[in-house]
Amino acid sequence: MSTIEVGGKSVELDEEGYLTNLADWSEEVAGILADQDKADNPDFELTDNHWEVINFLREYYDEYQIAPAVRVLTKAIGKKLGKDKGNSKYLYELFPYGPAKQACRYAGLPKPTGCI
């Protein structure tokens, strides 16, 4: 396990970088987790499009108590946000390390079921 410092508070992460306590999530936490991915992609910044998916995932988790795998995520986003956003190409452009895994990590959710 590791920790990150957020507003003077230590937040615990599991061995894969997901929050161990979902209640520790904040937009600041998401920003710090995204900054960790900048090592491989220095130009990476969270945009409104990223936040739209992150907030969608948080609402989805509140309703279903599960972090969706990529296929379910793509279909659910298509229903709510439209076909132009509910496709793998768009989601992989936003979250190149895997739309479900990376977006769920930023959203403070557990690793999606079925993700390796």
Rank of each mutant, 00 (worst) to 15 (best):
residue 59 E to V: 12
residue 13 L to F: 04
residue 5 E to D: 07
residue 74 T to F: 02
residue 2 S to G: 14
residue 46 L to G: 12
residue 91 L to P: 04
residue 43 D to Q: 11
residue 113 T to W: 08
residue 66 I to D: 08
residue 19 L to G: 01
residue 37 D to G: 01
residue 3 T to K: 15
residue 76 A to H: 00
residue 91 L to Q: 15
residue 42 P to Q: 06
residue 55 N to V: 05
residue 27 E to V: 00
residue 26 S to G: 07
residue 47 T to Y: 02
residue 71 R to K: 08
residue 33 L to E: 03
residue 90 Y to F: 14
residue 81 L to A: 11
residue 116 I to A: 08
residue 78 G to E: 06
residue 55 N to Q: 08
residue 57 L to S: 01
residue 107 A to N: 07
residue 7 G to N: 15
residue 58 R to E: 04
residue 35 D to P: 02
residue 22 L to Q: 13
residue 116 I to N: 10
residue 1 M to K: 14
residue 107 A to I: 03
residue 57 L to P: 01
residue 60 Y to T: 06
residue 112 P to C: 13
residue 97 Y to D: 13
residue 34 A to T: 09
residue 64 Y to N: 15
residue 54 I to N: 15
residue 90 Y to G: 06
residue 64 Y to V: 13
residue 86 G to P: 02
residue 64 Y to G: 10
residue 84 D to M: 06
residue 71 R to D: 06
residue 44 F to N: 02
residue 39 A to D: 05
residue 39 A to W: 12
residue 9 K to P: 03
residue 48 D to E: 08
residue 2 S to M: 11
residue 105 R to W: 03
residue 109 L to R: 11
residue 65 Q to G: 03
residue 84 D to P: 00
residue 103 A to Q: 00
residue 101 K to G: 08
residue 30 A to H: 08
residue 102 Q to A: 10
residue 47 T to H: 01
residue 57 L to H: 01
residue 78 G to M: 04
residue 20 T to N: 00
residue 28 E to I: 02
residue 34 A to S: 13
residue 27 E to G: 10
residue 104 C to W: 04
residue 8 G to R: 13
residue 5 E to Y: 03
residue 44 F to S: 07
residue 6 V to A: 13
residue 87 N to F: 05
residue 93 E to W: 06
residue 60 Y to A: 06
residue 16 E to Y: 07
residue 72 V to Q: 10
residue 18 Y to K: 00
residue 58 R to G: 06
residue 68 P to N: 04
residue 111 K to Y: 07
residue 83 K to V: 06
residue 115 C to S: 13
residue 37 D to A: 09
residue 89 K to Q: 15
residue 67 A to C: 11
residue 76 A to P: 01
residue 95 F to L: 06
residue 37 D to I: 02
residue 103 A to K: 05
residue 92 Y to G: 01
residue 33 L to I: 07
residue 63 E to G: 00
residue 29 V to S: 05
residue 23 A to I: 00
residue 88 S to I: 09
residue 87 N to S: 12
residue 4 I to Q: 00
residue 40 D to R: 12
residue 90 Y to M: 02
residue 9 K to W: 02
residue 29 V to A: 02
residue 2 S to V: 10
residue 72 V to K: 14
residue 85 K to H: 15
residue 16 E to M: 09
residue 98 G to D: 05
residue 66 I to S: 14
residue 105 R to G: 06
residue 48 D to N: 10
residue 13 L to M: 03
residue 106 Y to D: 01
residue 113 T to G: 12
residue 48 D to R: 05
residue 94 L to I: 09
residue 8 G to S: 15
residue 74 T to N: 06
residue 41 N to T: 14
residue 98 G to K: 13
residue 25 W to F: 10
residue 106 Y to N: 09
residue 77 I to W: 01
residue 17 G to D: 04
residue 61 Y to K: 13
residue 113 T to H: 10
residue 107 A to G: 04
residue 23 A to H: 04
residue 92 Y to Q: 09
residue 66 I to C: 07
residue 84 D to L: 07
residue 58 R to S: 08
residue 50 H to M: 08
residue 34 A to Q: 08
residue 102 Q to P: 07
residue 30 A to E: 10
residue 110 P to M: 05
residue 61 Y to S: 12
residue 88 S to H: 09
residue 85 K to G: 11
residue 64 Y to F: 15
residue 110 P to N: 01
residue 111 K to D: 01
residue 35 D to H: 12
residue 58 R to W: 03
residue 64 Y to H: 15
residue 92 Y to M: 08
residue 78 G to K: 14
residue 45 E to L: 07
residue 106 Y to G: 09
residue 44 F to M: 10
residue 13 L to P: 04
residue 62 D to N: 12
